[in-house]
Design a protein around this nucleic acid. Structure first.
Length: 429
RNA sequence: GCGGCCGUGGCGAAGUGGUUAACGCACCGGAUUGUGGCUCCGGCACACGUGGGUUCGAUCCCCACCGGUCGCCCCA
């Protein structure tokens, strides 16, 4: 074996691709019900979109981006997340000027992050995400969370936990930031090296350090929730009220800060609590980002969104033993006995397909028995047999595989008969 | 970036410092000269991750690298 897919990437083979199709279909239906529209942005962007959008102090920008120079000397980055590109597109095309506001968007996109792969973490990963731009109504925060939870529920997941927090507005964050610096600075030399630099660049992120989790200063650290100003406090209360009203249970985690710089006010994560899920339990994460549109050159526009990892979603379905409905059957398999019959078979499958019947035949010169074995493996519902007798009498023998029953059909009626059995049957489902 | 475990045919999986490296599944064919799922028989298979080293000899021992996997950091 000479070539392999690069580290952290994987091929989705036909059997799994069917599961992906089902997941995407299910989610799209939810989006449609919530009245969100799809947006597609390029796989790569100017590096600066992420530096400015995601934030230079974040892990994503500092060590995870696939950045390269193109032949024109531009710095290009494979998108590591979806929000910054969508906002860039929103600004570039002045979607804020459209009549229908807020702008409610969703996307399916592959993301790229240079990390060491492990269970639930790939270098190329697939996310479904949602962004709502142009409304600062806390009801939108609840709607977006509702949408995410609905997707999971539609697919049958139950072992989920929704965790929310508020990061407050700019003023609240700044006050909290000062308090954090004042609180941790006396203990600076006791913290891990990462936290020592975090304390300077982004003290908020000291809070979710796993290494220093048990440090006494961590337990007594000032909580953002104690530094929310009146407005931020009220906003958070309203979000919680809306969640209560639409019946979505949640937990508050005052240490939930999220890794991206653009968040403010509502932050949330949805985690799997299924047994044997793996060490990484976050299925989806998101939050409000009221300053991001402006940061990327647009008008002052509030926004909120989330992204869910689709690989992790599939993992969660497996961990909860959710069976994904996948139809592997084939409607019609044409068996032909000899060379002349094979010519007839080629014409027959073509005609069947044009009339809406799913059809296939042998292409490996297998004997009759082998062709039947193949039909069986494909879970064919019907086998259409073209043998010497049939050729002579201008008929086709139709065998129903589940019962073994056979019937002889005149050649010029076979299409009608099969349409009735297959196409008609589908419409009645 | 750091650490644990792992690397034999398409898949699964034995095995040994020394002749042709088991076996199972899958696949193809035959028993059944036009009919599947069972059984029996036969066949097929580009396999010891790569490169060094130890050795008379290495799939096996040592080292490095690559890859996989799980975990740490962080995140979807």
């Amino acid at each position: 074996m000479s070539y392999k897919a690069p580290r952290g990437t994987t091929d989705i083979l036909p059997e799994d691709a069917k599961k992906w199709q089902w997941v995407e279909e299910t989610i799209k239906q939810v989006c449609n019900k919530f009245h969100y529209e799809e947006i597609r942005t390029p796989v790569f962007e100017h590096t600066e979109v992420f530096q400015r959008g995601v934030g230079n102090t974040t892990d994503i920008v500092q060590k995870e981006m696939y950045t390269f120079e193109d032949r024109g000397g531009r710095s290009i980055t494979l998108r590591p997340e979806g929000t910054a590109p969508v906002v860039r597109s929103f600004v570039e095309h002045k979607l804020h000027g459209l009549a229908n506001q807020p702008t409610k968007l969703y996307y399916f996109a592959e993301m790229f992050r240079y990390e060491r792969p492990q269970k639930g973490r790939m270098r190329q990963l697939n996310q479904f995400g949602v962004e709502v731009l142009g409304s600062a109504d806390p009801a939108v925060d609840a709607e977006v969370i509702d949408l995410a939870m609905t997707c999971y529920q539609e697919m049958g997941l139950t072992s989920l936990k929704l965790v929310i927090n508020s990061l407050g507005d700019k003023e609240s964050r700044e006050n909290h930031r000062q308090a954090l610096i004042a609180h941790f600075t006396p203990h600076k030399h006791e913290l891990c090296s990462d936290c020592q630099t975090r304390l300077q660049n982004n003290p908020l992120r000291v809070l979710d350090c796993k290494q220093d989790r048990d440090h006494p200063a961590m337990q007594t650290a000032p909580s953002i929730l104690d530094y929310l100003n009146e407005e931020s406090e009220a906003y958070f209360e309203q979000v919680k009220d809306y969640l209560d009203n639409i019946g979505i249970p949640y937990e508050i985690d005052k240490n939930l800060v999220r890794g991206l710089d653009y968040y403010n006010h509502t932050a949330f994560e949805i985690m799997s609590e299924a047994e044997g899920f793996g060490a990484i339990t976050t299925l989806a994460g998101g939050g409000r980002y009221n300053g991001l549109v402006e940061e990327l050159g647009g008008p002052n526009t509030p926004g909120i969104g989330f992204a869910m990892g689709l690989e992790r979603l599939l993992m969660a379905l497996e961990a909860e033993n959710q069976v994904i409905p996948v139809d592997r059957s084939l409607e019609a398999y044409v068996v032909a006995v000899d060379e002349q019959a094979q010519k007839e078979a080629v014409m027959l499958v073509s005609k069947l397909r044009k009339h809406g019947v799913q059809a296939d035949k042998d292409y490996l010169g297998r004997k009759m028995k082998g062709q039947f074995k193949a039909a069986d493996r494909y879970a064919a519902k019907y086998v259409l047999i073209i043998g010497e007798n049939e050729l002579e009498e201008q008929t086709i023998t139709v065998k129903e595989m589940s019962t073994g029953e056979q019937a002889t059909v005149a050649k010029d009626q076979i299409i009608d008969v099969m349409k009735e059995k297959c196409v008609g049957g589908r419409e009645h489902e």
